[in-house]
Structures are given as C-alpha cells and as structure tokens.
C-alpha cells in the first residue's frame, strides 16, 4: 500500500467539494481511481477514468509530481509513497 496526496483543481473542486486529500491504495492506476470513488464519489471516477481503456480520459491533465502521467508509465504507472498527484479537467488558455 502507498500513501499519496491528491490535489484537485478547477471544476473538480466545486463539483466534488474537495481540494486535497491523502489516500492509501495498492499503487496502481486502477487502484487509485477505485479509492477515489470510495472516498469521494463514484462519479469522479466515471468523469476522469475510462474503465475500458484502463486509463485517464483524454484531455484530463494528470500529473505525478508535476510530470504528465503519459511520461511516468501511463496506465502502467506505479505510484510511490509520498507522491503528489494533481488533476485538472480539460482546460484552455492563452
């Protein structure tokens, strides 16, 4: 089991009433979202995670210690104790 800090931004804060939590889970991506579903709401998992692909939905920005998930193993990522995850819904700007 690993303990990880999760930060939520933008619409995720309003929708789920949470800015930051710490979770314990098995260190896998599926495990991460299952724990989020349990702690916050199944809807957050539905919004952010594609069950069929076993991966974060397109255009969701998912960072592990400031690095995009795609470059730290994608859906094969192994989280470590003390990691910080930051999640943003699809965003634009200039």
């Amino acid at each position: 089991m690993v303990k990880v800090k999760v930060l939520f931004f933008a619409t995720l804060r309003d929708q789920y009433g949470v800015r930051e939590i710490e979770i314990n889970f098995d260190g896998t991506l599926r495990g991460f979202f299952s724990e989020l579903a349990r702690r916050i709401s199944p809807k957050i998992k539905e919004e952010l995670f594609d069950e069929n692909k076993g991966n974060v939905r397109e255009n969701v920005i998912f960072l592990v210690n400031g690095i995009n998930l795609k470059f730290v193993g994608g859906n094969q990522v192994r989280f470590k104790d003390g990691d910080t995850v930051a999640i943003f819904p699809p965003i634009g700007g200039g």
């Binding site: 933008a10 619409t11 255009n59 699809p90 965003i91 634009g92 700007g93 200039g94």
Partner: peptide
C-alpha cells in the same frame, strides 16, 4: 471540453 466548458467557466486564469 475546453471551448464548451473550461474557458467559459474559468477563463484563462485557470492556467
């Protein structure tokens, strides 16, 4: 999701 949701709700400051 960006032009239909993110930008209208938060503008650019979300960055």
């Amino acid at each position: 999701s960006v032009t239909g949701q993110g930008l209208p709700k938060y503008g650019t400051a979300i960055l």
